[in-house]
């Protein structure tokens, strides 16, 4: 028996046990590798995706429990057509190794959806679950502020 899963507006019939975490369905079954595995225990945020717009850790949501439409980094924009937030990331040259950045961007996008002009305290609260071993936090903060300003113009 398969389980239906809607990711980035496409519905897939997934033939995996229902307790497989969403992360591993995305990466190994659907082939969406932009969402990263970092810890498996919700301690690093590298696997952050949206379910119905809410930022969640894909390593902690079982396939059978996915309650809505899943959005991954691949649907936020493409190299040729980046979102405002992604463009801000590039403008601020945020990434170093880059491994955590998909999760950082997904978390930041959820923050901006809820709080269009976040202050530093809002950024601290929203982003503290997303670990970056390269220490790119100051540039992440600057990119979020810049994207917020840009989005408020349009």
């Amino acid at each position: 028996m398969t389980i239906p899963l809607t990711v980035n507006s496409t519905t897939h019939q997934i033939d995996l046990p229902g307790d497989v975490p969403l992360l591993w369905v995305l990466r190994d079954e659907i082939g969406l590798t932009g969402t990263k595995f970092g810890c498996g225990v919700s301690a690093c945020g590298a696997c952050t995706v949206h379910i119905d717009g809410e930022a969640v850790r894909a390593c902690q949501v079982a396939l059978r429990d996915v309650w809505g439409e899943v959005t991954t980094i691949e649907a936020m924009g493409t190299p040729g057509a980046m979102s405002i937030l992604q463009q801000a990331w590039v403008d601020h040259q945020v990434a170093q190794c880059g491994y955590c950045q998909s999760g950082q961007i997904m978390q930041a996008a959820a923050l901006l959806a809820e709080t269009p002009r976040p202050g530093d305290a809002d950024i601290d609260a929203a982003m503290e679950g997303n670990l970056c071993r390269c220490g790119t936090y100051p540039r992440i903060r600057a990119a979020i502020h810049a994207a917020a300003a840009k989005m408020s113009e349009v």
């Binding site: 932009g34 980046m82 590039v90 990434a95």
Partner: peptide, 17 residues
């Protein structure tokens, strides 16, 4: 401008994993 930024901001950079 770093050559790896767009790929790393769009989830299209390929890591070993």
């Amino acid at each position: 401008p770093r050559l790896d930024q767009v790929a790393k901001a769009t989830g299209t950079a390929t890591f070993g994993i």
